[in-house]
Amino acid sequence: MAKQHISFNLNGKQVDTLVEPRELLVHTLRENLNLTGTHIGCESSHCGVCTVDMNGQSVKSCTVLAVQADKTEVKTVEGLADADGLHEVQKAFVEEHGLQCGFCTTGMMMRAYRFLQENPNPTEEEIRWGMSGNLCRCTGYQNIIKAVQTAAKNLQNANKSVETA
């Protein structure tokens, strides 16, 4: 099948590539663009390890066609840190021991990154529901919840200091 040209913003940079219509976004990211931080776990949209941010929303990149990413903005874990350093979500996962084998972690953090914009000050219950599209086999989730709470607190403090500055 003839390949199609797609062009999208990936972690702040414009990328152009050719893809088969059936190519899944996760394969384009990993194989074609060599960003292997986004993982593949179930391929049926249940586990969430392939979660990336697309046009400001969390999506499971195993169930999005690459052609559907044309003209969108995509952020992966590789784009989470910026020139100032690690994102608060990344720091909080280390601080609260919110990861073990690391396999779900990238998708988990990408979801947390977006979730905390949707709900900057969540309760534990809201975190459980808001993060329920991401599976983890190692942590029993408890420390991930703490990590999301810590990140929420630190992000709010950072915002406050920006506001008062």
């Binding site: 990993r30 194989e31 060599n34 960003l35 292997t36 931080g37 986004t38 993982h39 593949i40 992966t76 874990v77 590789e78 989470l80 840190a81 690690l86 990344q90 996962f93 280390v94 601080e95 021991h97 990861l99 690391g102 396999f103 972690t105 990238t106 953090m109």
Partner: peptide, 21 residues
């Protein structure tokens, strides 16, 4: 002690078998 291995995992630079090309 916070984990030494976390640095690569949170940056997406862990290297799993399927990442090898």
């Amino acid at each position: 002690k916070k984990r030494k291995e976390d640095a690569r995992f949170i940056q997406g630079t862990g290297r799993y078998t399927d990442d090898i090309k």
